[in-house]
């Protein structure tokens, strides 16, 4: 069921703007993550992973395109998905900072993939119930492919934990990743309107708890860093999340990545391929 009963105009505009922010956050997370993953093409530790990370990248860019298309439709088709993706200043991006960090070592990249894709899965599961039909349909399409990402993420989580140096590096990676990973659940501007209208059926804080509940048994069993305290209301982080991405505030490292992502486009804006 689509949003068939338009609320008062002002409220409707507010909800629409919040929906645009949500679509942008979803698309940008996938877009930037896809680019980051593609950096392993040609240099991954083994050939299978070269292919795997390239495929993960291709999947994520496909998902990003789908969400940019929804956004383009929402804006009445006046802008193309490519224009939305490439023709923005860095502060126009709404991805969490987790996505924009340099790839680091192998342990860092696969640990990031684990945290990102498990979180993304929780978010998509929630959006299956979105009252904005195009978004619910997109989530249903994307989530089927994400199951293969989870398979990859779980395999490497266990594989590194069983190693020696690998395990040390995995530890260091998780320690570095936690504040950024929590930034995935930074509430969106206008989130109250999204939840109220059923576009996003649950608030980000609830999704974050759902995610932590799902991954906690695995991470604790493997003895990986778990910087949370159990409270009546759920898991409380013992460190400050890196927020800002959802409001267009990015790390210094994003400047370079942004430059790379948009470099070809800037060579000849509007070129036909």
């Amino acid at each position: 069921m689509a949003l068939e009963t338009p609320p008062a105009t002002q409220e409707r505009d507010h909800t629409r703007a919040a929906l645009a922010e949500l679509l942008l956050a979803l698309a940008d997370d996938e877009f930037v993550t896809g680019y980051a993953n593609s950096e392993w093409t040609g240099i991954a530790p083994i050939l299978e992973e070269d292919i795997a990370f390239s495929s993960l990248a291709q999947d994520e860019l496909g998902h990003a395109r789908l969400f940019y298309e929804l956004l383009a439709e929402l804006r009445g088709g006046a802008v193309s998905p490519d224009e939305i993706a490439y023709d923005r200043p860095p502060e126009g991006f709404r991805n969490a900072q987790l996505a924009e960090r340099p790839r680091g070592d192998w342990a860092y990249s696969v640990s990031r993939q684990f945290l990102y894709d498990t979180a993304d899965y929780v978010r998509l599961e929630c959006l299956l119930g979105s009252r904005y039909t195009p978004l619910a349909q997109a989530a249903a399409s994307v989530i089927r492919e994400e199951r293969y990402h989870l398979l990859h993420a779980h395999t490497w989580l266990a594989r590194l934990a069983a190693g020696d140096t690998a395990r040390e590096r995995q530890h260091a990676a998780f320690t570095a990743l936690w504040p950024d990973a929590l930034g995935l659940f930074e509430p969106l501007p206008g989130e109250a309107a999204l939840v109220e209208s059923g576009i996003q059926p649950a608030p980000s804080a609830a999704l974050c708890q759902r995610w932590l509940e799902q991954i906690e048994p695995m991470l604790r069993q493997l003895g990986l860093p778990w910087p949370f305290a159990q409270r009546a209301a759920g898991w409380e982080p013992l460190l400050a999340p890196h927020y800002g991405g959802r409001a267009g505030r990015h790390s210094r490292e994003f400047a370079q990545l942004y430059d790379t992502i948009t470099s070809v486009r800037r060579l000849e804006p509007g070129a036909q391929w």
């Binding site: 292919i51 795997a52 390239s54 495929s55 993960l56 291709q58 999947d59 496909g62 293969y148 990859h152």
Partner: peptide, 13 residues
């Protein structure tokens, strides 16, 4: 199953 990812997105090894 060796890898969930292969020569194209729809194929595994």
């Amino acid at each position: 199953l060796e890898s969930a990812f292969g020569p194209t997105l729809c194929r595994a090894i």
